[in-house]
Nucleic acid binder design. Structure first.
Lengths: 294, 294
DNA sequence: CAGATTATACTCGTTTTGAGTATAAATGGA
DNA sequence: TCCATTTATACTCAAAACGAGTATAATCTG
């Protein structure tokens, strides 16, 4: 093996939000993300990624941004590099055999604070058992999970996952060094470090949506303000204060009325909006915080 | 050449702030960043980076975070991947032959808005000439450079550099397709795409410093509030309102008094501060905007 | 000791947040 | 038909944060 010469994989986390649930495009029964090796024929990293995703899922790749580059440390085996990407899109009508959309909270049930989280209590208990009397470990658990949801920071998806890994509460951790068969946190598993990559993608999207207008990649051309709010709530895993959310959207000059009304549903019909052209051409939306309900 | 097997380089942007000037560690007379191929002996990407930086500059690598992964598209040549990193540190006393700290505004004179920028007028002029009558190009120029510093967004370092590249105003652009010998923007050049990587690093740091307490990596253990302000100003390339900056720091619970006073300089001696332990253990500092002087 | 220099402490009006209430326009069943 | 239900939209109001100043304190220099 020549120094500096290495196998390179491209991995995609493709996200859509359907009916208030964020979903991720998977292959192999939801246990893996679309991926494949970078090949000589690929003109660029992104076009290589595009080729693999379209071959494996027949889903077109829209907005894409780079996430992170990992090195796999397989002892004995050839080293490999994984370059991961986050893509935003909408769930298509056509399904392709082998490809399926899965709710991302199936993989991270503790990350959805919009509803009650029955899983949280046992996780806290297991983590406190793991931390024992060590003050630094106890502080880490408290800082990442918060006391009864107090001070929950939705951006810390990856540190929380890594904490569960260190505590041996996710099956992936058992793969490398199978210790005592203990209690495991709920949530679907993935091959290799794909679940870790998904955690990275969720964190990135949760953080980015606050200061960059990327939501519109996830919505149809026309939508109601409630659609917009629920899409952002789904991603953040939190609920927002409705009047303040509207004010926030108005102030940021994000959308404009189309003049049409939504129909069919119960209650007073909502106005339909579209994103303003300046927003689509990448604009501010800067710095403001989301009006999260306490 | 086997599919998916590729040469991988590690590149470091090491930043320090000395005497109110941000500096970057370079080799080869300031024309290149420390870098080298990933090797079999390297235990991880970061440890490989560490080895190269220490070999080429004898400077220890402290806080490091990944920046971006590029693919080089050399027609005919073997494809290569570059994984770039941002490191924060302090300028050491010892110098190593071949390694040198250069002010980062030597490479991007137009990015330092703390003082007058005589370079800005000719750059605007050249860009307006390039844009001609095309409205989309004119809008892009106006949005990125602002009208006489109005609405300058310090985070857009990379888009501005790319604009200059497209307009043929940086020498790197001439390397690929040497066109007419026109006027060039001031600023030092670098090999390959190293100046582009530096732009990425500056942008990342400017953005990150607003919502994460990373400054302390750049300051000594004890410092005055003015030291802190000037370090942040150097990075942002802007000046802040002093009373409001102090209020901002107090509110964010970032620092605590050490009880000692700075000595030796003119004027009333300043209290010395240190970062609070909770900050070093990665805490909030979230969302707030910097008190920029208008 | 006077003046320059730097640090630090307040003030004050404006904007932005957080939280809540009131009214409007549809649907659906009694 | 009418009334309860549901959803949308429009205001209100106090607290906190922000932007832009001014005033005072403690040093050094000559």
């Amino acid at each position: 093996m020549v120094d500096g010469v290495i196998k390179t994989d491209l991995i995609a986390v493709l996200v859509a939000v359907t009916a208030g649930q964020p979903r991720v495009l998977t292959i192999e029964e939801g246990s893996a993300l679309p991926s494949g090796p970078l090949q000589t024929g690929h003109r660029s990293l992104q076009s290589g990624l595009r080729a693999w995703v379209e071959q494996q899922t027949h889903h077109p790749l829209g907005y894409v941004e780079q996430l992170y580059t990992f090195a796999d440390q397989q002892p004995g085996a050839r080293r490999s590099i994984s370059i991961s990407y986050l893509g935003l899109s909408r769930e298509g009508a056509a399904e392709y055999p082998g490809a399926a959309w899965h709710g991302w909270y199936e993989y991270f049930p503790w990350e959805d604070t919009r509803t009650d989280r029955p899983c949280l209590a046992p996780i806290m208990e297991a983590l406190e058992g793991w931390a024992g009397g060590a003050p630094s470990k106890r502080a880490r658990v408290a800082g990442l999970l918060g006391k009864d949801g107090q001070g929950w920071n939705e951006d810390l998806v990856l540190p929380r996952y890594e904490l569960l890994w260190e505590a041996g509460l996710v099956p992936e951790a058992q793969r490398k060094e199978p210790t005592t068969e203990g209690w495991l946190a709920p949530g679907l598993e993935m091959t290799h470090d794909h679940r870790r990559i998904l955690a990275t993608a969720i964190a990135r999207l949760r953080s980015k949506i606050k200061y960059r207008p990327v939501v519109f990649e996830l919505l149809p051309r026309e939508f109601t303000l409630l659609d917009l709010q629920q899409t952002m709530e789904a991603i953040a895993g939190r609920t927002f204060h409705k009047p303040n959310f509207r004010r926030f959207i108005e102030q940021s000059d994000l959308v404009e009325e189309t003049g049409r009304l939504a129909s069919g549903l119960a209650g007073r019909p909502a106005k339909l909006f579209r994103f303003r052209p300046a927003v689509l051409a990448e604009r501010s939306f800067t710095g403001t915080k989301l009006p999260i309900v306490k």
